[in-house]
């Protein structure tokens, strides 16, 4: 079985490198959409969780627990079938449905990232701001958030790396990401392992270099403290 392993990989690459490149592009796009909108939605959830208005807090808390307590694949199925039923007029594409599912999932994790980032800022900072006469909102925007960002940004980078790997589940619905391309190549070339190795290497390279990037970002943020 491993006789032609090397030559087979070369053949796969030669014939389908464009497809893999496209797949990597879709994977990155899907990850970016997920983390970008997940951050917006997640920050809103974090605000709700910090709110003194009990129903908002309960709603956000329940949401986060639910999304973190059920499998992503299940959520993907749920949104994939539910969204077209719920909003038939929008004529959502597969890609859109899957993106929305990933966004809603990621938002729950981002919510916790933002919350932890804010909580990690010394309460003395808020106290000092409030004693100067700043309102709670001013203390948050002028003093706490600028410091919390330093905790939040690196964690968001790590979330991005995680999401890159999680988007592989979206290939269940053939949305054109790396894992989808694997299925395509496997089907046309009747090779199982070789394209898997190729795709694996691409995933690894993506996450490896992004992690390095996040780490250096983190170090620079620490240095400017």
């Amino acid at each position: 079985m491993f006789d032609n392993f090397g030559p087979n990989i070369a053949r796969v690459l030669e014939k389908y490198w464009g497809l893999f490149l496209q797949g990597a592009g879709y994977t990155l796009l899907l990850s970016f959409i997920t983390v970008f909108f997940g951050t917006i939605l997640g920050s809103a959830l974090a605000l709700m969780r910090r709110s003194r208005f009990k129903p908002a807090n309960a709603l956000a808390t329940g949401y986060v627990e639910l999304m973190r307590g059920t499998p992503l694949l299940l959520q993907l199925y749920f949104f994939y079938f539910m969204l077209p039923e719920l909003l038939p007029l929008l004529n959502l594409s597969k890609f859109a449905c899957v993106s929305i599912a990933l966004v809603f999932n990621s938002a729950a994790y981002v919510c916790e990232i933002v919350r932890a980032g804010i909580q990690a800022v010394d309460p003395g900072q808020t106290e000092a701001a409030r004693t100067l006469g700043l309102s709670a909102r001013q203390a948050m925007t002028r003093i706490v958030l600028p410091q919390a960002v330093k905790n939040i940004l690196p964690a968001l980078g790590n979330e991005f790396v995680t999401v890159i790997k999680e988007t592989s589940l979206a290939s269940t619905f053939f949305v054109g990401d790396l894992m989808t391309q694997y299925s395509t190549v496997r089907g046309t070339m009747f090779l199982v392992l070789e394209p898997l190795v190729v795709v694996g290497v691409i995933y690894f390279l993506l996450t490896f270099f992004l992690s390095k990037l996040v780490n250096s970002l983190e170090r620079r943020m620490k240095a400017s403290d």
Partner: peptide
């Protein structure tokens, strides 16, 4: 309160200067 706090300065044990 915010208005009145402006007239009462406070200094803390742990300084609480703004590092950013």
């Amino acid at each position: 309160l915010n208005l009145h706090r402006q007239k009462m300065g406070m200094v803390f044990q742990h300084f609480n200067v703004f590092p950013h």
